[in-house]
């Protein structure tokens, strides 16, 4: 099984399910409404994503885990998704934004610039 990545909030949602499973999806809606101030649809959307990732399953409104919490974290390096929505921007916007991305050399150069700077500021 390939590595499954979860965002911080997704992970909190997943924790919520693991703690209470089996749990009905309507109960999850109530829980997230209190904890995250989410709407019903949002709770369902995120849940579907977690199910799509293969961690949980929904059988007739009852959510149960396919992978236990311990198994999941044993396998994951608990690395959060940083750019889950990359690629969702229209291509022509991406064209504009791409040139602002840093290459490794540029980053190194700038880092050196910061490190070099002394208390008197850069000359």
């Amino acid at each position: 099984m390939s590595e499954i990545q979860l965002g911080v909030i997704e992970a909190r949602y997943a924790d919520m399910i693991w703690e209470r499973e089996p749990v009905t999806s309507s109960e999850l809606v109530k829980l997230t409404a209190v904890a995250f101030n989410w709407k019903r649809t949002t709770a369902h959307n995120v849940l579907r994503r977690l199910i799509d990732k293969g961690i949980f399953q929904n059988e007739n409104g009852v959510v149960t885990s396919k992978i236990s919490r311990e198994d999941f974290y044993a396998r994951q390096s608990r690395q959060y998704v940083e750019d889950t929505f990359a690629g969702s921007l229209p291509a022509f916007i991406a064209a504009f934004t791409q040139n602002t991305k840093l290459t490794a050399e540029e980053a190194a150069e700038i880092r050196e610039m910061i490190d070099r700077a002394q208390t008197g500021g850069e000359k």
Partner: peptide
């Protein structure tokens, strides 16, 4: 941003933004 969760005051965190 519907998935964003309030952190404190007017600061929200969200999995979905970079």
């Amino acid at each position: 941003l519907r998935e964003a969760v309030r952190c404190r005051k007017n600061i929200y965190i969200c999995d979905n933004v970079s």
